[in-house]
Design a binder for these strands. Structure first.
Length: 492
RNA sequence: GCCCCUGUCGUCCAGUGGCCUAGGACGCCGCCCUUUCACGGCGGUAACGCGGGUUCGAAUCCCGUCGGGGGUACCA
């Protein structure tokens, strides 16, 4: 039982979910699946000032949208709950108390200003700045003096005087000398437990075996390893120190870490823009991990089957929206016509091109139109632009002004007139017949340039110079609509 | 300042002493296909940060150097 892999993803519910966060979740998920382990989802909401219930809901919804299902966590439960830290405050208080009683942590009465001042002095001398262990060995007298001054202490962890080394799953052996890891605060003066305490506490209690997290937490790892050793002695958890793997950053434009403020970092933006979860995840998997054999297009199942942590790279990766889009386009092409129609329907409803419950006719029309755009789409958000001409009411149908000016010139009117005549007399209103007849008369007999004349027809019928294939579009629109749209221009 | 991580085409990834005159993908540029836009096909562009070693042989090992990033909190 004890060698079963347990990993966790533990975001704070602050603001929009971030793509870097999604990447971390994905790698943890894949690692769990690959090792037939457990994927724990924990919410780190101990910071009341920044966390919100709204973000919490978005977080859960996003994870579900992505299909990153958790084995234990909120709304799912599990043997180590609760999985929201805000519901575990008593646990942290208890652990803090034990650490203090057994001497692994001590009360520090220094004010932040005092600490800061001494830090500055250290810096000037070229020493590693950090807490100087001032309050490590206070006498009773000193304590009572501080109390008399009305000072409330923070709880600091007593770092052992030794080098801390671990074998990082993605970076290999890493080592920190003890003089570079000062005693750090576990509990604030006001009693709030800090990340430094709650995160390792929960990992220990939830029996996490592997910690895969962002590079930003790299420097806090030695402190946590020391804490785990203390946990072992005071009986918190099973006495296991997890293995650590530090994932590289996801960078934005320039050389900056993709920050929460960048719109390109917002998962919600990708969702709104019509990225498929499959596509986004596939792209994110490529940031820092490779399948091997030059394979870049794969499903999450395939990723999980092949996920070796040793193939994770340590270099920061730039998020490239173009490549992300290209992969998304591949995923769209891979969808079946029915599946794509389904997803397009949702998109069209969202932007109001279709009503909330589309009619049978509308659904059929959409299904018929799907093959026409299947290879043309990069994201679902492009659907309305390509297809709303099919769904719009005739009275609302508008032709792009600029396109009309370029293509629907005065000298093209005779061709439009001829087209109407042909279309009206066509015995069968089918793509091939439309093509053959219009081509025969307009191009062969009248000697017009196909490019010119068909572009004019395209603009008249679809409203744009760029559109899905013309004759197919005409066929699914129906004869009357096509005629009325062309005639509209003849009357002008 | 000190500590840590990191350095292959514009970008992401492959490459772990000879398969490398460095491979793939995205991008970009041509050409073909084509009534538009795409898809597809073909071709091209472009990189081992630098300097020393080690070795018959280095992108791969060692040393140095330079660059990028992060940490140095009663943030995470």
């Amino acid at each position: 039982m004890s060698n079963k892999v347990r990993v966790r993803f533990c975001p704070s519910p602050t603001g929009d979910p971030h793509v870097g966060m999604v990447r971390t979740a994905l790698f943890n998920w894949a690692f769990a699946k690959h090792n037939k382990g457990t994927f724990v989802f924990r919410i780190e909401d101990t910071d009341a000032a920044r966390d919100s219930e709204e973000s919490y809901k978005v977080l859960l919804d996003s994870m579900r949208w992505l299909g990153l299902n958790w084995d234990e966590g909120p709304e799912v439960g599990g043997p180590f709950g609760p999985y929201r830290q805000s519901e575990r405050m008593d646990i942290y208080k208890d652990v803090a108390k034990k650490l203090h009683e057994k001497g692994f942590a001590y009360h520090c009465y220094c004010t932040q200003d005092e600490v800061e001042e001494r830090r500055k002095a250290q810096k000037e001398k070229g020493q590693t700045p950090g807490y100087d262990a001032h309050c490590r060995e206070l006498t009773d007298k000193q304590v009572s003096d501080f109390k008399a001054l009305g000072r409330e202490p923070v709880l600091r962890f007593r770092m052992p005087s030794k080098t801390i080394t671990w074998n990082d799953l993605v970076r290999g052996e890493l080592s920190f000398e003890h003089e570079h890891i000062p005693d750090y605060v576990l509990v604030r003066a006001n009693g709030d437990p800090l990340y430094t305490l709650v995160n390792p506490t929960d990992d220990a209690l939830m029996e996490i075996t592997h910690v895969l997290r962002g590079e930003d937490l790299l420097s806090s790892t030695p402190r946590q390893i020391a804490l785990y050793e203390a946990f072992k002695q005071i009986g918190v958890g099973q006495g296991i120190t997890p293995e650590f793997g530090h994932l590289p950053y996801v960078m934005g434009e320039g050389n900056k870490k993709l920050s929460k403020r960048d719109p390109e970092s917002s998962l919600l933006m990708y969702r709104r823009e019509g990225f498929l979860p499959e596509g986004l995840l596939n792209y994110l998997a490529l940031l820092g991990w490779s399948f091997g054999d030059d394979i870049e297009f794969f499903s999450m199942k395939e990723m999980a089957d092949n996920f070796e942590i040793s193939r994770v790279s340590a270099n920061p990766a730039r998020f490239d929206i173009k490549k992300c889009t290209a992969i998304n386009a591949d995923w769209i092409r891979k969808l079946s016509v029915e599946e794509l129609a389904n997803r397009m329907e949702k998109q069209l409803i969202e932007v109001g091109v279709l009503p909330n419950s589309p009619s049978k006719e509308q659904k059929d029309l959409l299904l018929a139109a799907t093959p026409l755009v299947h290879e043309r789409l990069e994201t679902l958000s492009q659907v309305p632009g390509m297809l709303s001409f099919l769904f719009v009411e005739e009275k609302d149908f508008v032709v792009d002004h600029e396109d009309a000016e370029k293509s629907l010139t005065h000298d093209i009117l005779p061709a439009l007139e001829a087209s109407v005549k042909i279309i009206k007399e066509l015995p069968e209103f089918k793509t091939e017949k439309l093509h053959d007849e219009l081509n025969r008369v307009l191009v062969t007999e009248m000697g017009l340039k196909a490019r010119i004349v068909f572009t004019a027809l395209r603009v008249a019928v679809t409203g744009r110079r760029v559109s899905p294939p013309l004759f197919e579009s005409m066929e699914i629109m129906g004869r009357e609509k096509v005629i009325s749209r062309i005639e509209k221009h003849l009357k002008k």
